[in-house]
């Protein structure tokens, strides 16, 4: 599904991605992990075309996506921090995004699921962080796309919303979607992700199942296994 070849990205002198190669097959949940500043968000934004790589190629379904934009219709993206235009109301924002995509949207069910009805007419600038994240989730999941990219989806969510989020992710997986998730909450990753992609120093340091990772690092839980991976590099 996604094939990334020798991807390089520098911000000034800071090398973020250094010849990254990655292949992600269609269907399943992939967790992209790595320490802070390891290039997770840069990788995701490169796939979305928001960051322009210095070198390398990104292919989705055998087609290079660099300098293109139509392919984004097949991607649902949840940005890391839910920052929306403060002057718009929730309803207006949802209808705006619906208007911008030539696709059928299923927002009513999601609004009900996250109990957002009372907030529909409120301005986005007046919402709490968690509520904004719920709006963010509605915007992401209301379209039916092959690829779903979630950047820190759990930020600010209450336990009930978190349960709904996990259900949503499983539902999309059962439909055969490819889901990329970044998160620092290891229990969440362990619960939802099928495969782990571990980024370090701008390259893929580990790719495989959670069981393999635990075996390789001789750890019983994921949190320690990841900590082990990061620590090994620092020694």
């Amino acid at each position: 599904m996604i094939k990334i070849n020798n991807l390089h990205k520098k911000f000034g002198k800071l090398v973020v991605l250094d010849g990254l190669d990655l292949e992600i097959n269609s269907g399943g949940i992939f967790a992209i992990l790595g320490p802070n500043g390891s290039g997770k968000t840069t990788l995701i934004k490169s796939i979305l075309g928001m960051v322009i790589p210095n070198a390398g190629d990104i292919k989705i379904n055998e087609q290079s996506v660099l300098k293109k934009w139509e392919y984004r219709n097949q991607i649902n993206y949840l940005p890391q921090i839910a920052n929306f235009p403060v002057n718009l109301s929730v309803k207006e924002l949802i209808s705006m995004v619906k208007n911008l995509r030539p696709k059928k949207a299923n927002d009513t069910d999601l609004i009900k699921l996250f109990s957002l009805e009372p907030f529909l007419d409120k301005k986005l600038g007046n919402l709490s962080g968690g509520t904004k994240q719920k709006v963010n989730l509605v915007l992401t999941f209301m379209f039916d796309s092959e690829l779903i990219i979630l950047d820190e989806p759990t930020t600010g969510l209450d336990p009930i919303a978190l349960i709904h989020l996990k259900e949503l992710i499983q539902k999309e997986k059962s439909k055969g979607k490819t889901i990329l998730i970044t998160s620092h909450i290891m229990s969440f990753v362990e619960e939802v992700a099928g495969e782990i992609v571990f980024l370090l120093d701008g390259e893929i340091y580990f790719k495989g199942s959670i069981v393999d990772l635990k075996k390789q690092t001789n750890q019983v839980d994921l949190e320690h296994a990841i900590a082990n991976l990061i620590a090994k590099e620092n020694v």
Binding site: L48, M50, Y71, R72, Y77, P79, F84, P85, V97, L100
Partner: peptide, 11 residues
Amino acid sequence: EFTELLLAQPI
């Protein structure tokens, strides 16, 4: 923020 939201859309 608005711009970033738009950039992730097929535009």
